[in-house]
Design a protein around this nucleic acid. Structure first.
Lengths: 211, 211, 211, 211
DNA sequence: AATGAATGAGGGTTCATTCAT
DNA sequence: GATGAATGAACCCTCATTCAT
């Protein structure tokens, strides 16, 4: 009979190994993409035997999903703080937005390549993984929408179809993050990008003297 | 020696068959995704022999690329008209934008599922295909930017970093098209979406009375 | 109804095309070997259509065999003259041998590469082709043996087992021809090789003063 | 971590299986020739899975080469002893030659069919394998030549061009071995063949009373 | 529990052969 | 008769998964 201590130690070892496999998978997926990653690549990267993989994950898709879950949890965590401290006027709103985005990207920046890969490839693997990614965007849209609704009610935002507009706002964020991470905007600092986008979202491209 | 007539007829037959293979591939890719599509699925859909496929395309990737090329050519054609008729004031600009987007989506709508698939999966196949898709976005950004630059010069658009903002505008378009095609916006007509987005792009979310 | 003239002309045309295909096949087989030669290579070399090949030969093996037959007929022709003019003493015998070998190689030299290929690869294709090649060697052995038998009877050759020795003599010829054609004897002229070999065959390596 | 004992046992098992595959391949190649042998034939003969083959050899050519290497190593071993004990006169030389050849054929006789196949087909597979076989003949020629050079220097062999003559001697050996193995000399014992050939090599066909 | 050798179904690709024009 | 596009039976090889140790 195993002692409690021994049992716990084994569980820890198991959990550590699971994480090691996930980390290894993350590296290999980032390097080669889901399509071109073999299970044998993952176990080689993790320095474990081929059979060991199947003690922890039923197949390649499963470890990809686990990786995605871990990442999506991070995303939620990153945006969780945004609901606090409702702003009192448009300037505060704008400042709060900039701060929130800056903080969120900070967290995501740690695994930017993996993030890029997961968001890009998950929808091509499976409709289930596609739904998972969608649901995260939906959640972000919901957050954005509640902010926007309040801002309109408080009178410091232009009335509009908040469902569509918040989708668009999340879209800008996701798109530009993608562009930035993919190196398509080499001439700008991250802060520049964030500020310009927030201004665009707040004021549009229209000039004041024309309204 | 074949007569000219005969030669031409053969070329036509070859071209027709190539298109038939492309169409069949389009259907199967749309249904199953690149990953899960077998060459044997494509030839079954096209009702030709397995070997016939390899007379027209060297491998699965190649037919996917040809399909992408055909689609990207359509995209360019769709947006080619946008450069004509520079608008004279902000309202005309806004109307022109709506008209152009409506027309572009009209054309793309014919193969919406395929479009969705190509844009989503091409970047996961290959860095070359990834670049192809990127370059189309870049081209659209360039078009958007030249419009925006002029609008600012003419005084009916707010000065801003046009490189970033035009990237964002294309991003909104691509993102919302995606959302729309993927059925994530079931409550809105296409025209509603277009109008709301153009307004968002022109005026932002900021209220007039707060500026 | 075709006139006789027309019929003959067609037969000639057919025969010419058959020879053209054989020549083309010879070139390609020489270049690539039987194993790596495709029917499509042969028709490309012959500048005829893929289907045309099958009007003249049932398959790749058949054209190889036809080529072999054409070559073996040449070999027989080359050695046919050797039976004439029986020599009267050992020196005449030796001179006649040298002359015959020289003449034979003369004829074979025209298609040396093809000869090398056919003799080397035919036995690996088929046991039937193997037998064909064998039978040529047997025929040569028979010729050599009849000479040797007579020479012994006439008293200017050492009595020996003529079946084995004539096999060995043909073996030397075939082996050295192979070595020569394959470029394994770069330092010698053909005449040098022939003379040395004939001397070896006549006198062996043993020295006179030791007998 | 595997114990040393376990590791060694695994290596042995691996080596045993590799040899089993080689043996199986030998059987199938002998039966069907390189051209007509499928990898699936080899694995069926060896009673292992299709994939197992590819753990041990990259492709069909590779296992053929390994088989050839194993055989050529045997050939060298068979002839290695020939360099020892230089003979002191022509008779000793002749006796030594007979003994050496008898011993060499003894060893090769064990895998005569495979030997025949390897020497015959290897040059048709590849220029690399062709070179391998050539190099063995060259090595044998070198051995023969050193003997002949010494015999001439010692005065019990007729001066001659030793490069050509030793090539011819090896040629006789290879050719007659081939003829014997191929069943073209059914009326003679091996010893008869060897003796006759050695006599032919020593004394030629020329009669003594004619010199 | 961990291993890595063994497996074989499955997929891509070739190429001899057929056949409609 | 000549053509070359079409064909699909082979065949090679990969790689996710199993399993004996």
């Amino acid at each position: 009979m195993l002692s409690e201590l021994r049992k716990t130690r084994n569980q820890q070892r198991t959990e550590r190994r699971r994480q090691a496999l996930l980390d290894a998978a993350g590296k290999v997926f980032t390097r080669q993409g889901f399509l071109r990653t073999l299970v044998s690549d993952i176990v080689a990267e993790a320095h474990v035997g081929q059979g060991t993989f199947y003690r922890y994950f039923p197949d390649k898709r499963a470890i990809f999903e686990a990786l995605l879950d871990r990442f999506l949890a991070n995303v939620f965590e990153a945006f969780a703080g945004m609901t606090a401290n409702p702003p009192q006027d448009q300037d505060e709103y704008r400042e709060a937005s900039i701060a929130a985005i800056r903080q969120a990207t900070e967290i995501l920046d740690r695994d930017r390549d993996l993030a890029l890969l997961l968001l890009r490839e998950a929808p091509t693997v499976d409709s289930e993984l596609e739904d998972k990614v969608s649901s995260v965007y939906s959640a972000l849209v919901t957050i954005a929408r509640s902010f926007l609704d309040r801002a309109i009610k408080e009178g410091f935002a232009r009335p509009c179809n908040t469902e569509l507009v918040s989708e668009a706002i999340v879209g800008i964020g996701a798109w530009m993050a993608n562009a930035w991470w993919a190196g398509r905007l080499p001439d700008f600092s991250k802060d520049q990008v964030i500020e310009q986008l927030v201004d665009f979202a707040f004021f549009g491209i229209g000039s004041a003297n024309n309204s």
